[in-house]
Simulated assay, not measured.
Amino acid sequence: MKKLATLVVLIWILPLMAQKNIKIKHLDGKNIDAKILQLRLSRLVDSAKIAGLQITIINHHKVIYSSSFGYKDIENKKKLNDSTVMYAASLTKPVSAYIFMRLIDKKVFSFDQPIYKYLKKPIGAYAKWKDLGDDPESFKLITPRMLLSHSSGLPVLRQLYGNKVNLISPPGEKFYYSNEGINFLGFMIEEFTGKKLEDIAREEAFGPLKMRQTDMIWQSKFENNFSNAYFKDGKKYGSERRESSRAAGSMSTTAKDYANFILNLMKRKGLSKKVYYEMLRPQIVVKSKRGFGPLKDSTTSENDAIRLSWGLGWGLFESAFGKAFFHTGHGDANQNYVVAFPKIGTAIIILSNSENFENNSARILKLCIGDSYSPLKWLGHLDGGRNGSNY
């Protein structure tokens, strides 16, 4: 009995001891001790009033560090942990893109076949998308490639345009980040295959990648360990429990689960060589001052140095450490960020349940992996927040 108790203690404590001895490599090759990182992140989360945070770091194409900070339920003083289910917000988009590209490899879809050819009825016959029937000739020019690269001309959110979904730019001409475009991609997948997006996601991504705490819609098993979200002033927002799939942002996940997805991409698994090339190839140059809000229509050259662009499902930029891919996830009170540098095998996945994360993302990225290349100004993280939600 005494030996069994000792064994149980060792099983519990050895991983903690191992993590304390881990050295996390920054982009420039310098190391930070995991124990020091843990302490500094704890202090930052506390001083910045970030409700909760999950962070997973990848070095040399392996998960080297994973930890959680703060609370999943402030009112009841329940700590957030690595298994706590968080709202992914727009980190759903790259997963939806990956699912679609899996179907391309299976010859179900094509990047450049006009999307209207995958529909059973004229676009004006679908209540949710009937506005696109106002300009049928322009609609017929839209391809999946345009939807995936945010160059279809569809708006970010219909609510910002009088609840209408008309094109705000000719298809293929300009980058406009668009929830509506990615949601249309999900609708098209369901319409053409006759299957629910959540079922396809489980078959093509969550199952094969062992993302056991991830789903496109809310699951009863999440009730055991989920996170509430909190506004800047500490007021409770609650939890997102999406009952229907939205390709642009209905997913719930954990940082460790999402790390499985990122590792799969960094190792170029799951997709053909040709499709991977297209996914991480610049499809359209991004010249806007901001990705969202009023400045999305203003142009700038300030991101030329990092060659900011969009691939298929991912934002892209260049750094001294090779090409990188990134994505944000912005809900009403949930804020997330992912960036990966495949050449050197480094990535970070950050999920937060706090509206105070984005204002502090630069400090967290610098502390964790020494990243000062991510286009945080373009994302609006340095502006003190963004207008709108679910980007």
Results as ranks from 00 to 15, higher is better:
residue 92 T to L: 08
residue 107 K to Y: 12
residue 103 L to G: 00
residue 121 K to R: 15
residue 132 L to S: 09
residue 132 L to C: 06
residue 96 S to N: 09
residue 128 K to S: 14
residue 126 Y to Q: 09
residue 94 P to N: 10
residue 90 S to G: 07
residue 131 D to L: 03
residue 93 K to P: 11
residue 126 Y to C: 05
residue 90 S to K: 03
residue 91 L to E: 14
residue 116 Y to G: 05
residue 120 K to H: 12
residue 132 L to G: 06
residue 127 A to P: 08
residue 103 L to D: 03
residue 96 S to H: 04
residue 105 D to W: 03
residue 115 I to F: 04
residue 108 V to P: 00
residue 89 A to I: 05
residue 131 D to C: 05
residue 120 K to S: 14
residue 124 G to N: 12
residue 109 F to Q: 01
residue 133 G to P: 09
residue 96 S to Y: 01
residue 112 D to F: 04
residue 109 F to E: 00
residue 127 A to H: 07
residue 100 F to E: 02
residue 98 Y to L: 05
residue 114 P to M: 05
residue 95 V to H: 10
residue 121 K to C: 03
residue 109 F to W: 04
residue 94 P to F: 02
residue 118 Y to P: 11
residue 100 F to D: 00
residue 112 D to K: 12
residue 93 K to A: 13
residue 126 Y to K: 11
residue 116 Y to N: 12
residue 108 V to C: 01
residue 122 P to D: 14
residue 115 I to M: 11
residue 99 I to D: 00
residue 90 S to E: 10
residue 117 K to V: 02
residue 101 M to R: 02
residue 110 S to F: 01
residue 123 I to A: 06
residue 95 V to D: 07
residue 106 K to T: 01
residue 112 D to P: 02
residue 128 K to T: 13
residue 90 S to V: 10
residue 114 P to A: 03
residue 117 K to M: 14
residue 124 G to Y: 10
residue 123 I to N: 05
residue 102 R to L: 09
residue 97 A to I: 08
residue 124 G to S: 12
residue 133 G to F: 01
residue 131 D to A: 09
residue 114 P to I: 05
residue 95 V to Y: 01
residue 126 Y to M: 06
residue 131 D to F: 05
residue 101 M to K: 02
residue 110 S to P: 03
residue 105 D to Y: 01
residue 99 I to C: 12
residue 117 K to Q: 15
residue 102 R to V: 07
residue 127 A to E: 15
residue 115 I to K: 01
residue 103 L to W: 09
residue 104 I to K: 04
residue 129 W to C: 07
residue 104 I to A: 01
residue 95 V to W: 02
residue 102 R to C: 15
residue 133 G to W: 04
residue 116 Y to T: 10
residue 108 V to E: 08
residue 107 K to M: 04
residue 113 Q to G: 00
residue 100 F to T: 02
residue 129 W to S: 06
residue 123 I to R: 03
residue 103 L to R: 00
residue 108 V to I: 15
residue 132 L to T: 12
residue 116 Y to R: 13
residue 128 K to H: 12
residue 106 K to R: 13
residue 122 P to G: 06
residue 93 K to G: 08
residue 105 D to N: 14
residue 128 K to P: 08
residue 132 L to W: 10
residue 104 I to Y: 01
residue 114 P to F: 05
residue 123 I to W: 00
residue 95 V to S: 05
residue 121 K to P: 04
